[in-house]
Structure formats: structure tokens, C-alpha cells
């Protein structure tokens, strides 16, 4: 299970703290070497993403990845990030953006960043992606059952 929080802000640290504030959990937030937040010794998981003016935070009781991206259509990047089957299905900016957020949410779920290789992310056969549209953005959450 997870919950998404979306806010028009670039300050993810304050945003996260404001969510936890009500329950006095503020001071327990730690950040690892990649800036990824966690609560010391506690099994709750966060993931943060921003694009332009918006930040999204996903909170869950298990590993989770989230990505938000403004509507974009960078055809040039397709060969780098997608396989043939995926490329064939991209017809417009909506398809492109949805593909991007799926790929990103997965590598963030893994915690490996780009070094995993976006092309290696299978968006066709993997059904754990949850994509949703938010204004001119797409958000994707990746979580395994």
C-alpha cells in the first residue's frame, strides 16, 4: 500500500517534513549518501521525484519508486532508453512521457539510478507500474506485490 503526496514546490525536504510534522516524526528523518530519505530503523519507505514546479512523494510500507515528468517528447532519446517493441508504440508526447516515468520509477525503486540502464527496464511484460495523469504531468509508481 502506498500514498502519494503532490505539491507545487521544489523543496522536497520541507515538503516531506510537513507531511510527517503532524505526527511528530520530523526529527527522525535521516538521509543516506544519495540524499534518499529514510526513518532510522523503521520499515517505512519513501521515494521522491520532481519535475519543473512539482514534487511528488510516495510513502509506503514496502520498497517503492516514483517518478513525475512534465509532458515531453524527446524522440532522439528513444534508442537509448527503449527497445524496439516499446519504440513502436510511441506515437505522441503522452506515450513518450508515460514510458519515461515507468522506466524511471523502476530504477528509482531499485535505488540504482541511471546506471541500471533504462533500456533494461521492461515496461511491456511487467505489470507493476501504476501511471496516473496529473495536470500536464504524468506520475508513475512502481511497487511489487
Amino acid at each position: 500500500m502506498y500514498k502519494l503526496f503532490i505539491k507545487k514546490t521544489k523543496d522536497s525536504k520541507s515538503f516531506l517534513e510537513s507531511i510527517l510534522n503532524k505526527y511528530h516524526i520530523k526529527n527522525d528523518i535521516c538521509y543516506n549518501e544519495y540524499g534518499k530519505p529514510y526513518i532510522k530503523g523503521n520499515p517505512i519507505y519513501f521515494n521522491i521525484s520532481h519535475s519543473k514546479e512539482y514534487t511528488v512523494i510516495a510513502i509506503s510500507d514496502q520498497e517503492i519508486g516514483v517518478d513525475i515528468e512534465h509532458l515531453t517528447y524527446k524522440k532522439k532519446l528513444l534508442n537509448k532508453i527503449a527497445n524496439e517493441e516499446e519504440i513502436k508504440a510511441i506515437k505522441n508526447e503522452h506515450d513518450w512521457t508515460k514510458l519515461w516515468v515507468k522506466k524511471e520509477s523502476y530504477v528509482k525503486y531499485l535505488g540504482m539510478g541511471l546506471s541500471y540502464g533504462l533500456k533494461n527496464v521492461d515496461t511491456i511484460n511487467n505489470h507493476n507500474f501504476r501511471v496516473k495523469k496529473y495536470k500536464k504531468y504524468y506520475i508513475c509508481v512502481y511497487k511489487e506485490k
Binding site: 519535475s51 524527446k74 532522439k76 537509448k80
Partner: peptide, 22 residues
């Protein structure tokens, strides 16, 4: 962001005709 980095990587690959590994 990631998107910017990938953008850059592809730009460099094109300009210098190299393949940059993930």
C-alpha cells in the same frame, strides 16, 4: 534531473560519435 542527464549523454554520443555506457 535524470531526463537532462540522458539528454546530455545522447548529445555527447552524437557529437563525438561514441557510445557511452549506462
Amino acid at each position: 534531473e535524470s531526463l537532462d542527464l540522458v539528454d546530455l549523454v545522447v548529445a555527447f554520443e552524437e557529437k563525438y560519435n561514441i557510445k557511452i555506457l549506462d
